[in-house]
Write a protein that binds this DNA or RNA. Sequence first.
DNA 1: GCTTGAGCATGACGTAACGTTAAGGTGTAT
DNA 2: ATACACCTTAACGTTACGTCATGCTCAAGC
Lengths: 255, 255
Amino acid sequence: MNYTVTQMSRLAGVSARTLRYYDKIGLLKPEFINESGYRMYGPKQVDLLQQILFYRELRFSLKEISKMLHVPSFSLIGALTEQHQKLIAEQKRLDLLIATVEKALAAQKGELIMSDQEKFEGFKKQMLDQNEKQYGKEIHEKYGDHIVNQSNDQFAQMSKEDYEATVAIQNELIQNLKQALKLNDPASEPAQKAADLHRQWLFYFWPEGTYTKEAHAGLAQMYVDDSRFTHYYEDHVAEGAAKMLRDAVRIYTSK
Amino acid sequence: MNYTVTQMSRLAGVSARTLRYYDKIGLLKPEFINESGYRMYGPKQVDLLQQILFYRELRFSLKEISKMLHVPSFSLIGALTEQHQKLIAEQKRLDLLIATVEKALAAQKGELIMSDQEKFEGFKKQMLDQNEKQYGKEIHEKYGDHIVNQSNDQFAQMSKEDYEATVAIQNELIQNLKQALKLNDPASEPAQKAADLHRQWLFYFWPEGTYTKEAHAGLAQMYVDDSRFTHYYEDHVAEGAAKMLRDAVRIYTSK
DNA sequence: GCTTGAGCATGACGTAACGTTAAGGTGTAT
DNA sequence: ATACACCTTAACGTTACGTCATGCTCAAGC
């Protein structure tokens, strides 16, 4: 029931160096030293090591862990509570950081495009993308999916090429919607083309495998219900564009 | 327009040592060196430093930042995307860690009680607390509040004394409910006492200022709707306990 | 008994991004 | 002339080990 450093290290999944270090700093001493000077560990040490590793996981410093184990009056609850608060604070900071990175990414990607296209358009599109993502989330939550952060990932991983593709699709969509409005028929070929382009476009913004006909139809309905979207489409196409797209998508998704 | 180390450091909110360090590792060299050997920085360096600090905020290492600024072919989008993924991974780990700390805290608090009381009871209560917190959240979301993590905080900060107080309140609540059931009257004194104890109990679990009569009544309704709660009260009091508590709370909150 | 290879020991340097003295030169106001 | 603020380089301290380098120990095979 006695282990040498390497045996003990394999048992717990740490390095032998770690054990020697813990010995040195007085965190975990071996049970006794062999006549050859070898460190020998017993079952008590195994248990202690497990505890140490548990608290290390929780990001306590070795100093704190040492106090926990060696100072009898140590308030474990106090320490855990404090650690909990630290972790929560860290979590909040991380959330902020992630948002900042996403902004930086959007700015970086946007800049590449904006040098070619009109800057105002770029801004508007970016705004729209934001809303679109948000709405995608809401719809999927309604449908029981819990995607939450996933969609931001999706956007962050989008390449410059993908981004340009979405812009191209959007332009084509607008052209087709204009045609459809002239014909005033959501079942017409340009209207159905627009609905299909819209679906393609969504694939860039929604996480893999989350597209459903219902969600697509739901989003199109929101274009009519939500003035932000309605205005965007009215401004870029013509009056009644949001409704036309909704009707086209309804027909498209019912097939 | 030229700054010495300390002037520059005050400008950017970093230490002079940091600037000397950045000089040493070649991250940010001064514009020129004074005849007295002083480092002199110009406006270009100020801009560069701002960029460095921005990326440092995003938790890039100084090595990476150095590449960003000095290697012309460096892919900023690639780096940002990678960093984004790292941060997301970190976020997930943090979420797990926080959950683990909370479990450890609950276990620790529970243990103090369990030495006095029966262990099975302890476990059941812990389960209920969990559900209670969850339900509090759901109710408040229905009522438009977005509390989310706050309630976990609340629990984590709870002292041993508070924890024991909740247990005491709960026991008293159960006694009063039993009386009320015998009288079979939700307006009776013990029933109203139970409702009041229940309100007191909630104050320990819900974040400050989030208690409303509506939320309280809503939770009591859930006791009837949700079998987990219904069973708990039926087991600990008697048949019809959940309904009695709901009715008592309805009367209590309507006053 | 000897060699070989695995395993043990200690010691010391490297890591990241600085903080913190320590010892000594510079600039300016009194 | 001196006081005081500011500059310089050098070097150690921090955290939790990883990674050699050098040398001893142990069990197995010849």
